[in-house]
Structure formats: structure tokens, C-alpha cells
Computed example of a mutant assay.
Amino acid sequence: MISNFTLVDKAQIKKNIENKYLKVAVISDGQFRYPTGREALETLGYDSNILITLPRSVADSYCGTGNPFSLGKIEKGETILDFGCGAGVDTLIVAKIVGDRGKAIGLDIIPKMLEKAIENRNILGLTNVNFIISQGDELEFANEYFDTIISNSVINLVPEKESTLKELYRCMKLGGKLLLVDQIFIGEKIKQHDVRVKSWFQ
């Protein structure tokens, strides 16, 4: 695939994302035109039985436009990737779902966000979840490594979307699930929409 982005373009995009999410790592409230924190988790229909186990300091760092867990069932014992995990709230929720026999890995490009994710993990005392920094274009995982990949409002930020989706597919097991929620802008005037995509690769 021929890229429409130069290295300078990609560097500028990365810098813009970092500048935005450095602020979000400190406080997500007021940084977006949609709800964040516990209010967003409740509005988006996250499992109330899990939400009650999240301290306010953890829940308040949530930032997303949708609920990937509404798109498909995740089983205990699965190995999960959260692509673009941010402060790690979805990663920690999925770690609770898969249990001690499962594993959750959160990936992000912003070191400050991963610091917050690790802080949240330590608050919850979870041992089946890790966070790693990655640019996302070439993932360090073996082919067919993950049972399920989730992503919440991240693909819209990626310059090379086709390449990224191919790389996610490479890392996903045959018959695995890609649970992706995102936002797009359409029309002459910018309008925000949620896009929920559920994919099973056979």
C-alpha cells in the first residue's frame, strides 16, 4: 500500500496527539465534547457489577466514545489486546473479565498515559495485565497471538488505518474477535458520530 503521509506528516500527527493526551493524562474532564469518567461508563452501558469495583480515581480517567464490550462476549482465560489503551480503564475491565487464567495487554504511544494506566493497575492490584509503549504500526506480537482485540476511539487518530488494521488482524487468532468503537466526521459541517464495528475473522 502506498502511503499518502510523509515522515514529517506522521511526526506532526504524533506530536499533536501527544500534546492533547498529555493534558488528558492529568484530567480527562473538559478535554472532549462527550462525557468522560464514571458518567461516560454509566451512559455507555458498561457492566454495573464491574463499575462498582472501580475506585473513583480509576473510573474518572476513562475517555472513550463507545463500549467495546457491547459488541461481543469475552470469555475467561482469553488473551486480550487493548489497542490505544490510554489510561487503561478498558484494559483493566477486560482483565477482570478474563480472570487469573487470562491476560490483558494495553498498548499506547503516550508514555504519560501509560504511567496513569500503571498507576490505575496498581490501585486495583491486578496481576494479569501489562502495559507497553508502541507506535502501533508494527506490533511485537506473534501471529495469531490474541483471542480478542479491543479498541476505543483510537483508529481515527492513526494515519495509516489500513496498515494498522492488517497488523491487528495478523496478531489475532483464527476466529478471533475485533471489538472496535470509534468516531468519524461526515458532511460539510463536522459532526461527531459513533461507529461500532463487530468483526469475527474466520
Results as ranks from 00 to 15, higher is better:
124 L>S: 10
137 D>Y: 13
64 G>T: 04
155 I>D: 06
129 V>E: 11
111 P>M: 00
63 C>D: 00
16 N>P: 05
82 D>K: 13
23 K>M: 04
117 A>W: 13
14 K>L: 11
42 E>H: 02
189 K>I: 12
38 R>E: 03
143 N>K: 10
196 R>T: 15
150 I>Q: 14
19 N>D: 15
37 G>H: 07
41 L>S: 01
33 R>Y: 02
99 G>L: 10
124 L>R: 02
154 V>N: 11
74 I>Y: 14
202 Q>F: 12
26 V>Y: 03
65 T>A: 07
128 N>Y: 09
102 G>K: 00
114 L>A: 05
133 I>V: 14
23 K>W: 00
117 A>V: 08
130 N>A: 07
112 K>Y: 10
189 K>E: 14
83 F>D: 11
13 I>C: 05
179 L>H: 12
133 I>W: 00
145 Y>T: 15
88 G>H: 09
105 I>E: 11
132 I>K: 08
156 N>D: 02
171 C>Y: 11
8 V>G: 08
92 L>Y: 07
158 V>D: 06
39 E>W: 00
199 S>D: 13
136 G>H: 02
47 D>A: 02
17 I>L: 14
86 G>D: 00
3 S>V: 00
23 K>D: 04
82 D>A: 12
125 G>H: 01
200 W>G: 12
139 L>V: 10
133 I>P: 09
107 L>H: 08
178 L>F: 14
46 Y>I: 00
2 I>T: 10
168 L>R: 12
106 G>Y: 07
72 G>E: 07
188 E>D: 13
131 F>Q: 07
101 R>S: 15
28 S>R: 05
94 V>M: 01
30 G>Q: 02
79 T>R: 14
1 M>R: 14
194 D>M: 09
192 Q>M: 12
49 N>Q: 11
141 F>R: 01
94 V>S: 13
105 I>L: 04
111 P>V: 04
123 I>K: 06
81 L>K: 10
